[in-house]
Design a binder for these strands. Structure first.
Lengths: 326, 326
DNA sequence: TCAAAAGTGTTATCCTTACACCCATGT
DNA sequence: ACATGGGTGTAAGGATAACACTTTTGA
């Protein structure tokens, strides 16, 4: 019996619906117990080397088979190969196999498609309740996370600095991109149910009941899917700022307010209305259609469309290398 | 005989030496012919699931075994799984296996360490001669690449637009980060020896002799290593602008001019001296040491050190989300 | 004394941020 | 009329990019 490697593909499929950023989740069927898993997971499937020329094609295939959903924008996130992060052994031929999973981020404008059974759109604040700062700093941070992390750090300056930076404690500023860093910190501190579960599995024990605080810190997912989701959210939040990805979750026609609410839902922070408009309009990424949307509650808003053509002129932006003329 | 999957790890190890950005390459030993491969490759090795808890640990292990080199800064680049990009089948137990390779980027300040045999530092302009714009636009672009791409496009507007954008043709501006895009375009256009080789292999033919132009377009590498290298260079150039990665290839003490030459070597563009100094000094990432380096040829320059501590205060930069106060 | 490289000062311009305000619709 | 959200004007402050210039060394 040899220990070989199996490649799994996982998809973080993001949409925005009613001002909430949502991710496609499902209750996977557990072959061992022949029941639905109590925990949600991301769509995932094995990569069959005979069947597919590329990962991306394989991903599109199994996602549509598993969820009834056709992917649009897709990008590779990261390849996860750590032993002991509850990546269960798969049975392959004669032996057991280590599962390596290649995570993908996918974006779609249509969160309302008909879906396969046991497949639901979940707001990601279910999994990361501390990530939504649109209504200000969440109480959970100072009331739940801060004391628990201080206990964990117990004076260690490195741990204190990490906690301070990640969760904007004691006057540090919030960086909405560090989603993974925050999740990993909670995992390390034993505040995610997954860490107790993984530790128990490594020692052959049964996983413990989650502590009360742990339960308040977002729902866990199967395997390392919450980690993959955190990677996807972080990547998406970062990319918002230098690539026009927000439009990938918008319908063909939208108002600037709707675009703003979408960006806010993803970034998890409130944006300045007037300046957001100007930033967007100045980029030439949108084109006014002259037509109005009357269902806004106040003055009707102009409808815009995304100018995909504009991608041609895109410079990189980002922190400057002061180049030299000519 | 089953077709299974083998994971390989590849490392793009970057240093800067005498004002040139260099990458660690080797001539791999070909088990079939029992000779050294005529083409250079990146350090790579199989990932043994029994032996290693994480990819990164495995990478550090086999790189030091293969090249005699200890890695410092390491980050995952991308996982390459396409069939037909000359990823040769590996023999595993009873069957053939598809090779999936996880590429890593590593940075090191010491390009002069003693190395294993057949391991050399190569300037990357050997592989991408069109990427060095420090002395202005390379002639190769207008004299070699442009006509060949125009022939390939033969009027197709999509192809023309891609070529124009990637290589800054006809007044388009150069974006130094699009290294992979440029290499992939040349590959698709049949201008990289690798594409003819891969096509021949797919059909069971012998690879053809590279055409004269193709030979001028940079040295090919084994397998898809030039593609991995392009991914690494692109990632590094992008990251320069928003993370203090340049310091990872600098010695402990350096002058601001040396730092500038390093950044120029990586980014492949000339920078404005006075403004570069100011940008660097304003970030608080460096600290003047009060001591001087006399070997500059002119007036002695102050030595600086990298303030790793400063990482704490890092804001995100990048294209702004106009946040709201408080 | 001159070449070469280090380092400073200053300015026009653009972008970001913030504040104040007006406009069009439904109830 | 007034609440609600859409949309515009403008000005302060800071960063960028360009210019011109002084300083310190070695040959």
């Amino acid at each position: 019996m040899t220990l070989s490697v199996v490649i799994g593909l996982s998809a973080v499929i993001i949409a925005v619906r009613d001002g909430e950023a949502v991710v496609l989740t499902l209750r996977p069927h557990d072959a061992l117990t022949d029941r639905l898993s109590p925990l949600p997971g991301l769509p995932f499937g094995p990569f069959a080397p005979e069947g597919h020329r590329t990962f991306e094609l394989a991903l599109r295939d199994f996602v549509s088979a598993q969820t009834g959903f056709e992917l649009g924008y897709v990008e590779q996130l990261y390849t996860f190969g750590d032993k002991g992060r509850d990546a269960p052994r798969a049975e392959v031929g004669a032996g057991a196999a280590r599962v390596v999973s290649v995570g993908y981020l996918a974006l779609t404008p249509s969160a309302t498609e008909s879906l396969a059974r046991d497949t639901v759109w979940s707001s990601w604040s279910r999994f990361f309740p501390w990530e939504d700062w649109r209504k200000g700093r969440p109480d959970l941070i100072d009331e739940g996370i801060r004391p628990a992390l201080l206990t964990w750090a117990s004076g260690d300056p490195t741990r204190l600095a990490r906690a301070r930076l990640a969760f904007a404690l004691d006057g540090a500023s919030w960086n909405e991109e560090r989603v993974l860093e925050r999740y990993e910190l909670l995992y390390e501190a034993g505040l995610a149910p997954e860490s107790a579960r993984d530790a128990a599995r490594a020692e052959g024990r049964d996983p413990p009941e989650p502590a009360a605080l742990s339960a308040a810190l977002g729902e866990p997912m199967i395997s390392d899917h919450r980690r993959i989701l955190a990677t996807g959210l972080g990547r998406l939040r970062g990319k918002l700022k230098y690539r026009p990805v927000a439009f990938e979750v918008m319908p063909a026609e939208f108002t600037l307010s709707a675009l703003q609410r979408t960006v806010e839902a993803i970034a998890g922070i409130p944006l300045h209305k007037q300046n957001f408009r100007r930033v967007v309009e100045r980029t030439d990424l949108v084109q006014g259609l002259g037509r109005m949307d009357a269902d806004t509650g106040g003055r009707p808003a102009e409808l815009f469309r995304y100018r995909r053509e504009a991608l041609t002129a895109r410079p990189a932006s980002g922190l400057s290398l002061p180049g030299i003329r000519d």
